[in-house]
């Protein structure tokens, strides 16, 4: 059995012929294994879903009535001639890398990932394999994240300064993952935290699974906003500039994303502040993750794939670019990052 036959790259997505399943497919299929619940990975319309216990409830919340089965991290499952298992990816709560073994040949699909603990989601665990399919959203040497406590302090200082002026701090973040990570980072802040409905709905799903999130106040039409002056408000960036955001008056605006590392992107967002908080691996983390898999063949998907693959090849890996439809929505990719 040759390497390439464990997983194939097809028009519908990453396919395993031995188990007749797809991983994060972008067209409807019979059987889909899902790395995490973000919209570009967990799409609507598959007949059967398999994902971690942390991912399935969020998928149900987002996709409605689906046929889904949950699996634990590390649990081995035989599908056809393939053996699959899910391993923590550290991207968002419940996110996984998917290991596929066929006849002793091991491939791992990373999904989206970051290294190190963020205090909330299961920490990335390296999985030895022959071939590793890695994202590289931030695969450029300008992307290096600062330690989480440092960034948390920057956001807290900003919040405090706004609170001192009696202004709201309106912080934009993707509603699944980034928003909850920020809640955790900012749990000891100088005031209450208000949340947009899209964020609070995910909070409820995650709290029901026992995730320790701090108390939040859902922004509803009849909420007495003025009574919460100086509060932090977490909302998806799409809510900014809408009538929803107007109730907060002259709020200071911020956005939390890995893209905020670049001044140009920060300026395009036209927010007061950009905080570099990413749920994707930075440049050093990508290299560490790839090295720790021990894989010889690296397939890089969404991000700066051409550049990153060339760099890996010069570093002695056998790297190739694989076209996928993950993160094709610019807005979403930036928000999720």
């Amino acid at each position: 059995m040759t390497c390439a036959s464990v997983l194939h790259f097809t028009e519908r997505g990453i396919f395993c012929p031995a188990g007749e399943f797809y991983i994060d497919p972008w067209r409807p299929v019979d059987r889909a294994l899902i790395t995490h619940a973000h919209a570009d990975h967990a799409r609507w319309g598959h007949r059967h879903y398999l994902a971690t216990h942390g991912t399935v409830p969020v998928m149900r919340h987002r996709l409605g009535d689906i046929t889904a089965e949950a699996i634990s991290y590390g649990e081995k499952r035989k599908i056809g001639d393939a053996t699959v298992s899910f391993h923590p990816a550290g991207h968002v709560p419940g996110s996984a890398q998917i290991r596929v073994e066929v006849g002793g040949e091991v491939w791992v699909v990373s999904g989206d990932y970051k290294l190190g603990p963020d205090g909330l989601c299961e920490e990335f665990a390296p999985v030895r394999c022959h071939s590793f399919i890695s994202e590289c959203t931030f695969g450029l040497p300008v992307f290096r994240w600062q330690p989480q406590p440092l960034v948390a302090q920057q956001i807290l200082d900003w919040w405090q300064a706004n609170a001192d002026e009696g202004r709201f701090s309106l912080l934009g973040a993707y509603s699944l993952g980034k928003a909850q990570r920020l809640l955790h980072m900012l749990r000891d802040g100088p005031g209450p935290i208000l949340t947009h409905g899209a964020v609070e709905n995910v909070n409820e799903v995650l709290r029901a699974q026992g995730l320790p999130l701090p108390d939040t106040i859902r922004v509803t039409p009849d909420l007495d906003v003025k009574g919460h002056k100086g509060a932090l408000v977490i909302a998806p960036p799409s809510a900014f500039g809408s009538s929803w955001a107007r109730r907060f008056g002259q709020a200071s605006t911020g956005f939390a994303s890995g893209w905020m590392q670049l001044r140009g992107v920060r300026r395009r967002r036209a927010m007061d502040r950009g905080f570099v908080v990413s749920d994707h691996a930075d440049w050093p983390e990508l290299h560490r993750a790839i090295t720790e898999t021990g894989a010889e063949n690296i397939y890089v998907t969404h991000g700066y794939t051409d550049i990153f693959a060339r760099h890996l090849n010069e570093a002695g890996f056998n790297a190739q670019v694989v076209p996928t439809e993950f993160g094709t929505d610019e807005d979403e990719a930036e928000d999720a990052a």
Binding site: L140, P141, Q261, L262, G264, Y304, I307, R310
Partner: peptide
């Protein structure tokens, strides 16, 4: 100084779009 090949610096610069910033970041 960043211990990266020049082509990688150049490609990165093309994306960042600002030389002063690219240097500061790498």
């Amino acid at each position: 100084q960043a211990d990266i090949p020049l082509w990688l610096f150049e490609d990165t610069y093309a994306i960042v779009g600002d030389l002063a910033e690219t240097i500061a970041l790498v």
